[in-house]
């Protein structure tokens, strides 16, 4: 099936075109509620967003309402299949699923999950010669959106003389470049570094503790777009990092 949105003339392209954004992303969106995190340093947000989405004919009906006589009340597979062909599944399959784990600019973060799909109107509109019906859809999105100056903690995955590699929540990678590591931290090179040693060495912090396990850091720069998501942290602001309270 061809991309339904391409055929609609009424849909103006977004003002700023970004190549990195996949085609599958909805062109129109408005953010309804930005639930500001009550907790400091919480990178996960629930954002209620409305999209103007197309609805493929296959999904544009409720089988139970239109052909109740053909849908057996028993719990058989065919009936379940027919029941599954409803606008909600259509929206999920065609629009929301492809957006998962992607950076989406209007919400300024990566969409991890969605929930609670509801339509703004009872009916979808077919404008002019468009082959598809369109409808405003509101959905709650769970968004991963770290901000600059936020304190996060991550598992140290790689240490080298010039950076520390981290993994936040076992998923998001971050790196702390040499310039953002305090001067009183030292990198101890592994004795057998020339041979088959696993790690090149270890960082030792100002107190002389070896660096391992979880490490707190301050988010410094963020680069995101489409598939690529890169986060850089800093450790320079030691006091702030130590004082910060992190959500569990």
């Amino acid at each position: 099936m061809s991309d339904p949105r391409k055929s609609t003339k009424g849909d103006k392209p977004r003002k700023r075109k970004r190549d990195s954004l996949p085609d599958s992303q909805p062109k129109k969106a408005r953010i309804e509620i930005q639930r500001a995190p009550k907790i400091e340093n919480q990178p996960y947000h629930i954002v209620t967003t409305s999209f103007y989405l197309s609805l493929a004919p296959k999904y544009a009906f409720h089988a139970e309402k239109i052909f109740p006589q053909n849908i057996s009340t028993e719990d058989d597979e065919a009936a379940n299949y027919m029941k599954s062909l409803n606008p909600k599944t259509g929206i999920e399959k065609h629009h929301l699923d492809p957006m998962l784990m992607q950076f989406y600019e209007p919400v300024n973060g990566i969409i991890i999950a969605y929930n609670n799909i509801r339509f703004e109107s009872q009916t979808a509109k077919i404008t002019a010669e468009a082959p598809y019906a369109y409808v405003w859809t509101t959905v709650d999105l769970l968004v991963w959106r770290p901000r600059k100056e936020m304190i996060l903690k991550g598992m140290v995955t790689l240490q080298s003389a010039s950076h520390i590699g981290l993994l936040v929540d076992n998923t998001w990678n971050a790196s702390i470049p040499l310039a953002k590591i305090p001067n009183d931290w030292k990198f101890v090179e592994n004795e057998e570094a020339e041979e088959e040693a696993e790690e090149a060495g270890l960082w030792v912090d100002a107190k002389g503790d070896k660096l391992e396990g979880l490490l707190r850091f301050e988010v410094d720069t963020l680069k995101a777009g489409g598939h690529i998501f890169a986060m850089e942290g800093t450790l320079l602001n030691t006091e702030k990092i130590e004082r910060a309270t992190l959500p569990e």
């Binding site: 790689l158 950076h163 590699g165 990678n173 790196s175 680069k223 690529i228 998501f229 890169a230 986060m231």
Partner: peptide, 13 residues
């Protein structure tokens, strides 16, 4: 390579 992608995720591709 590992250090490269860990420090600069955009080289992953």
């Amino acid at each position: 390579l590992a250090n490269l992608v860990s420090a600069h995720a955009h080289y992953m591709g």
